[in-house]
Design a binder for these strands. Structure first.
Lengths: 188, 188
DNA sequence: TCTCCTTTATCTATCAGTAGATAGACGCAG
DNA sequence: CTGCGTCTATCTACTGATAGATAAAGGAGA
């Protein structure tokens, strides 16, 4: 088996586990078993658990940033753009009631190594920055601070909708929340 | 030392730990050390970890329900009423960046014993029911389903604000979100 | 091409630490 | 003397992490 393959498979298995049960529940043995190698081999690619967690969060954020940028490139309707955004969070719930990787890690904030925290922070930044840009099209008359505040609130509300929907095991709750955010005027 | 005292101290110490690091990080040894007894004594009062977790969530919900009912009894201004509600969530952050017990447990949904899940669910129900009642005063013309949906969205948004503010270690983010929820018309 | 050396990627085996849980003994109050 | 509460001591299971062996591949020089 190719080197890159193993490394990729480790990251993929680990990502799914964290999105399912959180950073604390991530174990080298479980990841190794899922991939079909020994835990020592996982340590070879990621010396410490913090290294693995940071790598996961970094890639997660990178992928998200790339996707969000691609949305801005297309000159699509702003509501459709926002719908595509929320659809990403919905997809995590669809996939076995999982959560946003950085959302679930936020809950474990205290236990995260610094290197992981940095990446979790960056995920929030990337999302809020993107939402701020989107709002610039939607509410061009708002001040920069207002847009940033609103963007933060929208991001938090979506994360919360995911958290509550997951806790109740009902994806309809997520849809209900997103709809309420829009019709109340919080989100586009 | 009185029996009730020990039991109370165990629950108090355990509650603080869960609000800080979650259900998974709750350990009999740590609780025992914080109280000043041995872990076997904790097992005497709460045979399994699930028993302890369920007792914590049950009391947490009971206390919240009592507080919320008391708010409804007083004929105060609805905005003041809502401000007192959000203040409770804010207080958790103030107290060493802690989270709502049931909020952080929602993130650990997969690992929760059934008995704990039931109580976490009930917490959400209690909050949403209360918010629905408050909205009845604020938006009497809305349908029952609309009010329930909006109440769910408000609850989720507040939980999300707490989650994101905690993840970034900045209570100002929570305040920012709450303000945005209000000015956008999502919450009263 | 053949040989020597290094690197890569994995394995087995083991470590110390901690988890939840249990059995049985001790002390004390009613 | 009984029973409640706590203790000591221990168990099994699992955690992240490390050491050392091994097989395979690549590169360099004769």
């Amino acid at each position: 088996m190719n080197v890159q393959d193993t490394r990729e498979m480790i990251m993929e298995a680990a990502r799914l586990m964290v999105q399912d049960r959180g950073y604390n529940a991530l174990s080298f043995r479980d990841v190794a078993a899922a991939v079909g190698v020994k835990s020592a081999s996982v340590h070879y690619h990621f010396p410490t658990k913090g290294d693995l967690g940071a790598a996961l969060a970094r890639r997660y954020t990178d992928v998200a940033a790339a996707f969000l940028n691609s949305l801005l490139d297309e000159p699509i309707d702003i509501h459709e753009c926002f719908a595509k955004y929320t659809a990403v969070f919905r997809a995590a719930l669809e996939k076995d009631n999982r959560m946003c990787l950085c959302g679930i890690m936020s809950a474990e904030y205290v236990d995260l190594p610094d290197a992981v925290r940095v990446e979790v922070d960056r995920f929030a930044e990337v999302n809020i920055d993107w939402l701020t840009k989107v709002l610039s099209r939607h509410r061009p008359r708002a001040t920069a601070a207002e847009k940033q505040s609103l963007a933060t609130a929208i991001f938090a509300a979506i994360e919360g909708a995911q958290l509550v929907a997951r806790g109740r095991g009902d994806i309809a709750i997520f849809d209900q929340c997103i709809k309420a955010y829009r019709s109340s005027g919080l989100s586009p």
